[in-house]
Structure formats: C-alpha cells, structure tokens
Write a protein that binds this DNA or RNA. Sequence first.
RNA 1: CGGGGUGUAGCUCAGCCAGGUUAGAGCGCACGGUUCGGGACCGUGAGGUCGGCAGUUCAAAUCUGCCCACCCCGACCA
Length: 581
Amino acid sequence: MRLSHLMSRTLRQAPSEAETPSHRLLLRAGLVQQLAAGIYSFLPLGWRALRKIEQIIREEMDAAGGQEIRMPALQPVELWEASGRRETYIPPLFIVKDRRERELALGPTHEEVVTELFKQQVQSYRELPVLAYQIQTKFRNEIRARGGLIRLREFIMMDLYSFDADWEALDHTYDRVFQAYVQTFQRCGLPAIAVHADSGPIGGKDSQEFMHLTEVGEDQVLTCERCGYAANTEKADHRKVTLPPEGPLPLEEVATPGVKTIEDLARFLGAPVEKTLKAVFYAASQPGSGGGPEPVFVAIRGDLVVNETKLRNVLGGAELRLMDDREVADVGLVAGSASPIGVKEAAKRPVRVVADDSVLSAPNLIGGANKPDVHVRNVNYERDWRADVVADIALAEPGYPCPQCGEGALSLHRGIEVGHVFKLGTMYSERLGATFLDQRGQQRPAVMGCYGIGLDRLLAAVIEANHDERGIVWPAGVAPYAVHLIALSPDRAGVRDAAERLYAELGERGVEALYDDREESPGVKFADADLLGMPLRVTVSPRTLEKSAVELKRRTESETTLVPLSEAAARVERVVKVVAG
RNA sequence: CGGGGUGUAGCUCAGCCAGGUUAGAGCGCACGGUUCGGGACCGUGAGGUCGGCAGUUCAAAUCUGCCCACCCCGACCA
C-alpha cells in the first residue's frame, strides 16, 4: 500500500477525549475513527491488524477442533423469552421492530441461537463433542462505553460453543479450548494470565477470564506470587483468619451510646474488630419477577467486607443494593445496632438471613441488640441464632492470605479481560430442548461450554502491551504490514526508481509492505514509521544509494544495517521471516 | 441511572468571568519557492451554523433556561 493514497492520516496530537495509551495510539496512527460513543469505524491499517488477529484466532480454534459457522445478528425475542433471558439479560437488549411490529434483538451473544442449531443438527452422542464458533459483530446496550476499543456497544467477538455428552467430557473440551486461548494470546504478542472468574447464577462449574494486566484495565485481579493463584476480585477467596476457640459465655447486654459503626464499637469496648459481628442490610430484587425487593440481613465477622457478587450468587442472581437507614427502620430493625438474634421476630416483614462462614468458628462475638445504643456480648452462632444460608460471601482484599497456598499474600492488579472461558452446563440445553441420544437410547441435555474473545478489545490490549513513547511496536503476527518502506528525497538520485523497484519486488515475493512514497521531509517519514510501528523499516535514500544499498531497521531496535541494493528484497524477505518467528 | 467534566476550523487550544468592529493562534490542508537522515523554512490562500433551540439585550461565542453530544468515576461484560 502506498502511504500517499492511504485513507487515513496520522495525528501529531491525539484528540483530547483519548486518555489511555491504546486509545491515543489507535487515533494517532489512524487505525480507527469514532462514530458515536462505543461505535468505531476501522480504517485500512486498523482493519488489517484486526484481520490478522481474526486469522490467528481462526487457526487456533480450528486446530482445537472448532468448526466455523455464522449465526444471525438479528434474533427473534421469542428465543430469549424461551431461555428466560429476555428480562434478566444485562445490559438490556437492543430491540428493533420489523414492519409487522415483530420484535427482534440485536444479538449480544449467541447461546440461544447456537442451542437451536444444535437441536436440529445433532442427535447422537456419536457426533459429540461439537465445537462451533463464529467471528461476528455483537451489539450490547452498554451502560457506558469507555476507553476507546476497550468497551464498545458494537464489537467483534469470537464466540465458541461446545456440546458434550457429560461433565467429564466437557472438562476435556474446556482444557482444549483453554490451551487454544493460551496459544492465541501468545501469537498476538499479548501477555495474558488466566484468572478464576465469577460464573454467575447459572452455576457453571468453572469459569476463567484471560486478563492482560495493566494499569488501564477496568477489572481488578488478586494474585498470589507464591503459588500463582489468580482471581477476579468478584470471585477471589482468601484464607480466613480463624479465632482461637473459646467456651461460649452467657449473653450480656452493654450500653453503647452513640456507637454505630464496627470501628466505633471495637474502640468503645476495647475489642478487636474480628470479635465483632457486622450486620449489613440489602434490598434484593429478582430480575424479571415483578415483586418488590426483599430485605436481606447479612451477618459477617466485623473485620470482613461483603462481596456483593458472591452474595448475589447465593441469592440466585438477585439485584442488590444497600438499604438506607429509613428502609431498615421500615422493616423494623435498628441500623447501627442490628442483631441476627431474633431478627425474624423483630422484623415487620419476612427477612432472609445470610451469614458468612466466618461467623461459624468465631465465638463470643459482640453484636447488635436490635435496640438503639445497646449491643450484646458473647453472641454465638447456633446457640443464639441461625441463618437461612451460610456461605463464603467475604470480599478478598490485598494483603489477605492466599486461599490456595495459605502462605502468600494476595496483591491487587488491574487488567483488561480479553477472553472468557466458561463451563455452562445444561441450562440452555434444558430450557431450549437441546438433547441427544446416549448409548442407551436415552434423551439427555448436552453439557455446554462457551468461550469468547473480544477482537477489538484484544487489539487495544495488544497496543497497550506493545508501544513506546514514539508509537506502536506491532508484534509480527498482528502488524498490518511486515515492512514499512521509506523513500527519502524521492526526487533525487534515482531514489524513487530504486524504491519503486524494491516495492514491486517485495510484492512479488509476497512480503506485505507499506510504502511511504509521499513528498515529506525525513523527520516526518521516520516519525510516522515509528508511530505506525511496523516490525521492519526499510529506507532508500540518496545516502544509501551512494553505497548501492538500502537500510534496514527493526522497530524494536535502534541499530540499522545496510544491505546491498541487489540483495535487498531477498534480505528483507528473510528478516521478515525471522521476525515472524 | 447518579456524580464530575468538556463542546469555538480536520487536530490541539485561546477568546467567555467584566456582551460591542470582518472570531484568533499553532499544527494540518491547497498553491508557489527554498530545503532534504528524525515531526524544516518563507510567502499566498482555503477552511468556522462558536453543539442545538429559546430567552434577555440596541447588540450574544460571551449572560439565562432547556435540550443534545462526547469524556471520566461507580453497577455490567469480550
């Protein structure tokens, strides 16, 4: 491609709305142009890079046994009603109407559609496993688009769906796709780690996200350097400090005038925070069930914080929000001095009680009394109160002991989620009737997995991970072009002729080259070459031609080498192959 | 949706608080000339519904109100 006719321009200054490095470089290098919030056009260079990524993914998914298909972006909403997600899917679907007022959803994901496909196309266990994938535009009515290509409302996703006969077979398929993901990110030049992720209320067995760790990521990840444990903060566990066992002491009310918070309480009574019992009130609404919110009383040891994702899962996917003091009072309880003891009797409405498992082994805690300015000493689980649900609902925080090895301390990082692999199970196959006949002729629902990679976001992450102060430093596998050919002072000393010949010869050899044939000063051309970031720069100038040579320079290095003009194309081809690995 | 911020030329911004001739600068773009290995220089020129609508006023980029768009922070996700 000739730079003189390329349908994009480089920008010396990035538009002010761009803050993250990848966003700034995407705009400065002329890879994309924004049309609206979270909606972008791809310009030639950006599109080529995206297609390189697409091809890597395609090759890896094929190698893992995937079959490429193509499903519609327009989906009848009836299908979403059948799966039960019409109302529960967040963010809400983009809905359009056809001329007969029939509602169609712009597909944000394709579990429903692929399950329909399976239903008709696959009947026997002998055909399993089936791994079907597509690379296609998705539409999500995101609450907020952000970070350039990091969070889009229209984006390209590779989504693969697997169907197995049982959970054990799914485990194997999952591992296979997992490995394909590892390979994919490696080939894209993106450092990425797999972290444990929330699998949501669907209750799948495993779910992992692939994260590129970077300051500008929007996800938070806790890792243990000692054993390698890594988890999204919404999923992360930690080894809870247990308190020394004590015999239960009798309940004892104490006056605590003006004490509202756990910190106040611990200070007032001279007790450590972990000897207190914290009460938190949530209003839980089941999405899609028209009823009002249900009050939930959450009890957790005073030193711990509630992880709302875990709590939501325990409550079957309810939407949660903290109740304010007035709402707490309306239920008949006392904020700041609430007690799990007799809470159900004290409340005016039915209250669900959820306890973190930290309270089980914590004897003689100090809790509320359901009376203002009074607390109770020596609260013991089981003897004094019981919860409807006991589960781990604690938030893991940096510095806490690792749940896996127990020795390392968790540390916090930010990351961009570039991929997600997920053991779905049989929810969709059961609801939509995607069954197969097993060896004994029994109808059974397929055990599904789903796996996604956001291509646009991956492209942004690749730039995030591969740039310097001058511009992009494309990994060879993703670079729009392998070579950036520059003709300096093209009107002098046969430079244009030499450059044209080299450009043509590279084309004949199948070397992808971007050719800067513009009438620009050397400074501009070099600066643009650095900004655009192709792996190999080839310069033809009066100075090199004096020596009957051209100059080669890798984007990752500062040294240049001269190679004879006569061998230039062959040498460039060879270097390109070396760079590509 | 709540909180914060920004809208003036293709990009970066000044002008607005204290309303008053043809609304400015740098970069970019066009033409001519000089340069030519790290974003050169000189000259000429094109390019603007000052986000939109309404209001106040003799007069609005500037003051007031409403609306819109975009960015950032929180809940969702690839």
